[in-house]
Design a binder for these strands. Sequence first.
DNA 1: GTTTGGTTACGAAAGTTTACGTTAGTTTAC
DNA 2: GTAAACTAACGTAAACTTTCGTAACCAAAC
Lengths: 251, 251
Amino acid sequence: MLVDERRHRIAQLVLAHGAMTVAELSRRLGVSAVTIRSDLEALERQGILKRNRGGAVAPQVLRFAPAFQEKTSLHRREKERIADLAAQIVEDGEWIILDAGSTTLFLARRLRDRRLTVLVNSVYALNELVGAPNIELIAIGGSLYEPGLSFVGPLAESFLEGLHVDKAFLGVNGVDLRGISVNNAQEAGIKRRMIDAAEEVIVLADSSKIGVSSFVTIAPLKRVHVLITDSGAPGELLQEFREAGLEVLVA
Amino acid sequence: MLVDERRHRIAQLVLAHGAMTVAELSRRLGVSAVTIRSDLEALERQGILKRNRGGAVAPQVLRFAPAFQEKTSLHRREKERIADLAAQIVEDGEWIILDAGSTTLFLARRLRDRRLTVLVNSVYALNELVGAPNIELIAIGGSLYEPGLSFVGPLAESFLEGLHVDKAFLGVNGVDLRGISVNNAQEAGIKRRMIDAAEEVIVLADSSKIGVSSFVTIAPLKRVHVLITDSGAPGELLQEFREAGLEVLVA
DNA sequence: GTTTGGTTACGAAAGTTTACGTTAGTTTAC
DNA sequence: GTAAACTAACGTAAACTTTCGTAACCAAAC
């Protein structure tokens, strides 16, 4: 097995389970614990996971409190800047969809004092916006997908059927020339519906996700209108995105 | 279990319940009290919770924390007994709807360790059941109605369209011979849909609501199969309910 | 024959528990 | 209503266990 292939599988396992021990990874992949550790170190440097004594945890394994998510989030600074910029392109009175994910959660916080109708797709965002005085808050229902506490499945998808919003803010795991992608099939379906429902699709992705292709491709680049990322993203690639017709904003 | 994993769970437990003792956390997570204390210290440094003698509490009064509802609930004792009885008539493997309301929230807590598919209609119940190992949790989406943090409106109502569940547990404001009633029109619509979707309709109402007629009547008594109340309810009236075909359980 | 990718071996470091003296709340006695 | 007595929780330190990082070594590929 090639190094990159193994590391990809490690990343998948950790992200899918939320956490994995070195011993378990060693057993599953048939390599020594030392090798697993060096893989985890490499993956941690890339911001894909967080190491712990005994193993590694997924950065977005967070449960209940928005505050907790924010504090433990990887690339927090970048995500906050992206959210700042995203908040600026939201106009009062609009109908928007806020997808699940840490960056969109930062965005939610910045919208609390605005006058908007917001459809949210995660328990975190819901909790964050409850009680905001001028926000008409709508929860997208459906089966709860635990890793990100988001709503998925056929019930969630049919909820969005026939709905139209001005803007959809999507979080993804990868953006490259082929399109946007996520690391699980459950969330892929509902994200596709959000794209269908939105006049304008805005993808929020910090630089660790640029040029990366994750497990499931949601949509080709041409379905995306705006990409907001941070200055760590490779300039040449962003230029190629622009040539493909994408509006790219760098926070 | 990895350190971060455990700390996430501690944070979740403390924030979801409002407060937790060291002993209880130690028991639930299977580590010593010393370890819990060091975790609490770390979490306190991050501002996620506040330590105090015996355990830890959520930092500010989180409006959406289920514990807040429970602690401030009127007729708490009665409602807890009603919830105990209601939990007994739920059978493993069933599909049930949990309506919004304080009594149904008490019921939610009693169902955490069961194997069920639960449709919830409030943010409180959602937060309460997140992370329950054998519960397939489905949120009814829709516009958020702030007083009870419940989902209402046409989107919520059409969510339930075509769905069928074994039991629906409803909270109401009044039960008399004319039927069940609530104090606002918004929630009336979604409650009617819950009744339509359920094989068996179970109304949870403490004795202060028996013999009371509130603002909007949801349904006549004959649409209700079971009423669970407490011993403070007037016996003659309960007898009349029984004669009208209702099964009345007194907790 | 050097580079790449991996293993085994082992001392160092970190996390957890047990043990124990101290402290802070609560009850009881006056 | 205060003070003594009691109980439960706390912090610290030592001991134990597990995991980590480093280094020396091995094997296949180029």
